[in-house]
Amino acid sequence: MSLITVKDLTVSYGANTILKNVSFSLDAGEIVTIVGPNGSGKTSLFRAIIGATETAAGRIELKPGLKIGYVPQRLHIDQTLPMSVDRFMRLTDRVSKTRSKEALEAAGVPDLSKRQMSQLSGGQFQRVLLARALINKPDVLLLDEATQGLDQPGSAAFYQQIESVCRETGCAVLMISHELHVVMSASDRVICLNGHVCCQGTPAVVASAPEYRALFGTGTGGALALYRHDHDHDHDHDHDHDHAHSHEAAE
């Protein structure tokens, strides 16, 4: 069976229906990205999957004994709370120091274990969050816009790290991201969400779907152009690049 199966999920806050009849599934080893505009219910969907939000209708089935590694959108550690990286790694799972070191290595930050969490840079912090999520060898990794606050090269490197770790360990990934151009190339499947599932499929299929264009075609023209520029578009070296960019963005 699939690791996570969502069937006709509806989530409401008071009179507001955030998600309506959302269905999808995540299989072992898959990397699936959820994209959608602000307020499209991406985070509500995640909260429903981990059990933090009550569902109005529908079902969420997790494979029995499913181990979830969760990387939150942002984690604020109060200045008054002393927390070394090593202690943070063993927050929810009683694991050995060796395992903690392995996980930090897998996340690309091997030498931080003695540092305080408050002394880390944004990129190091996110990688430690990733390492903690990986520590009990989860079946699935959930990432909720895990690269907020990182610059573009930083977040590209972060997603590459995730892709390589998960391809290696066979861990499935379900992630939310705004940075379509960065994450789409690493995804097996993209789900475009806007209160309901607008369209889903391989990155190329979704990128060219009319529903997706309707949502992202104008607002994130630049990002889309960059994505298309990277993967779809053959350079025509007879005219200059600036012109090609503005042409794509205006499309």
Binding site: F46, R47, I50, G51, A52, I68, G69, Y70, P72, Q73, L75, H76, I77, L81, L91, T92, L142, D144
Partner: peptide, 11 residues
Amino acid sequence: TSTLNVELAYA
């Protein structure tokens, strides 16, 4: 865990 992050606790 709950003090650090509510979603992390639920997960």
